[in-house]
Write a protein that binds this DNA or RNA. Structure first.
Lengths: 183, 183
DNA sequence: TACATATGTCTGATAAAATAAACAATAGAA
DNA sequence: TTCTATTGTTTATTTTATCAGACATATGTA
């Protein structure tokens, strides 16, 4: 994604002008060509790890500080372009509200289930934690020997490391929010 | 440097076989070609940030965990191939023992000064901390209004944010170790 | 055994990252 | 003003990262 490029662009430009260095100075210090540095600072580049390494080493910075996102920053996710996936012949619909992002570590879904609809999930890898918040309707969440009936407003947090199941036990549509948190 | 490639290779391979996935699986999950993934796992690749992003996102990992160096790991720096720089007509010699590494954040030098030799350094950027340990001889370290005379065995820590000076005040060769720590 | 599927490796083609050098724009000094 | 640095941008070229698909090697299944 061009998220990283933006971070890199911001941080590099910031410290370069904090230190009052020209592109030539940085090029000499890092061994990366001036043209490439200019591209990077404009966020129009997709550098390789070795290039980033050279910059970090030459500027005496850590990776984290070089790739850190700028503070005070926001992102809007429009409801218009939310991708969604159907299961159970369209009776179970999953909308990806906030897609996974390596900087964040979690993702956010909205789920709609028709009456009687069921969804089964395989065990996720190791340390995945699921948070379910029922917005409307009623559902039973099962995992191992856990069977919890959630009403409107109820929230459940559980480990997704074993197979689990969502079941709409109400007469109408059930809607809930779902957060998947990765370790 | 190929340091990052090694870390990436190690971590990717590790979690791939922890999750019992094939290269095809990972290719499908991340959108990175199988050939490229194979190269990366062998440490023979120099991927771009967008490729790393795709891997991190597809595998639901953070950058840090993907780029983390394997634990239990050592590195030997041989005295044979230590680069060095001379100043003051060869009477001030700096040997780079451990070069800067973005993962570590500091670098290590050995310095030799002939009798009467002087070295002046410009102010380093912001949060640079210098540590001087005199191994042999005697030196005066000055920075701002600080003037410290160090004898064999003495150690001085000071901020390198202003111009400073090393001066060998002994009759013989003075040797000291120098650590530069970056914020 | 033969067959099928799955898995990692290798190869050639293509897209793109990276460089070096030319260029234009700017600022400073004589 | 003119001349000379200095700075960032642009262009042309080389290098290489990436991909799709072919290949070889297993690993089961009938």
């Amino acid at each position: 994604m061009e998220q990283m490029s933006r971070n890199l662009a911001f941080q590099l430009k910031k410290i370069r002008q904090q230190r009052h260095l020209s592109l030539d100075d940085v090029a000499k210090a890092t061994g990366v060509s001036k043209a490439q540095l200019a591209q990077i600072e404009k966020g129009e580049a997709n550098p390789t790890v070795s290039t980033i390494w050279k910059i970090a080493a030459g500027m005496r910075m850590s990776f984290s500080s070089l790739l850190q996102p700028p503070t005070a920053h926001y992102m809007r996710y429009s409801s218009k372009d939310v991708p969604h996936v159907d299961e159970d012949e369209g009776r179970y619909r999953v909308y990806s509200i906030i897609p996974y992002n390596p900087e964040r570590g979690w993702e956010f879904y909205k789920v709609e289930m028709e009456p009687g609809a069921v969804s089964r999930s395989e065990a996720h890898t190791e340390g995945v934690e699921e948070t379910v918040m029922v917005i409307k309707g009623q559902a039973i969440i099962s995992a191992g020997d856990m069977h919890e009936l959630l009403d409107e407003g109820d929230t459940l947090v559980f480990s997704g490391h074993q197979p689990h199941e969502y079941r709409n036990t109400s007469e109408g549509l059930t809607i809930f929010h779902l957060i998947l948190q990765y370790k």
